[in-house]
Amino acid sequence: MTVTAPPPVRAAPPEAPPRPRKGRRRYGPVGLYVPALVLVALVSVIPIAWAVRLSLYRTRGLRTVEFVGWDNFATVLGPDGWGDIARTFAYVVISLVVAVPLGLGLAVLLNKPVRYIRAFRVVILLPWVVSQTVAALLWKWLLNGQYGPLHSLFGGREPLADPIGSMAALILVNVWISYPLATILCLAALQTVPQETVEASRVDGCSPTQSFYRIVVPTIRSTLLILVIMLTLLYFNMVTLVYTLTGGGPFSGTQVLSLDAFLQSFQFFKIGVGAAYSVVLFALNIVFGIAYIRVLRGSSDS
């Protein structure tokens, strides 16, 4: 091989691909996407289009019987649906308000150079591997008002037996399974904060608290935003935990939109109404998804 020295990096104009082989110049890079595209089209895109169609029909079993336009959405978004929508937002917002500061706080602690930090890290992040089903089973047993270890705390009442108590329990368990994700992302972001800047701010007379809010938080702002969006999506779409922990009860106290979508379709076999709930969820996801991508774009431009 008689080749001259390799050209300096970025010698080519920025638009040109970094010298793909001739002949594959055009289709090679695109071709690498084909399997992924086929798969997501088949499993996500076609089915969601189908779900949108189903939401506009009255259904019997899996067959569409007649076009009803917005009727199914009237059930979902109408006066009877407000309770579920309000509960969904309460559940999502309160979970966020608890999980994000908790995750960030633990990440800050896990970022300190103290002894046994690796052991603490493993233990504190452990709920990340616990499935929603298992979390529901374990917490149901832990919160058991009669035989659980916390029963004296509840004064003999069953927390899962009244609507407020079960919503509180749902949020608690939800936070328990999702804060590790927050901690992992915050921890990774905290490690990118330059120590010199923090120390400089301390020399300039900032208290630790001040330098945290003025230096650290602004630096990891985009991670925090992404985290909030990721958790929002996760919470809105949470079916398994709600279904296995409370089943929406008691007295619809934990009936949220994602569970409605599941129950309407798979327990009441009102496919059309279930699809309408799904489409509303999908619309919510799109809104937060676009916000997510905006944040990603913004952070990579800077």
Binding site: Y33, S44, A261, S278, L281
Partner: peptide, 27 residues
């Protein structure tokens, strides 16, 4: 690699992860 429409293609693939699992279960 860079090519025309790459941004759109990636955006499209990423957006499919915004489809809620529960929504496509019946189809």
């Amino acid at each position: 690699y860079r090519f025309r429409g790459k941004g759109g293609l990636l955006f499209f693939i990423l957006m499919t992860s915004m489809v809620p699992g529960i929504a496509v279960l019946v189809p």
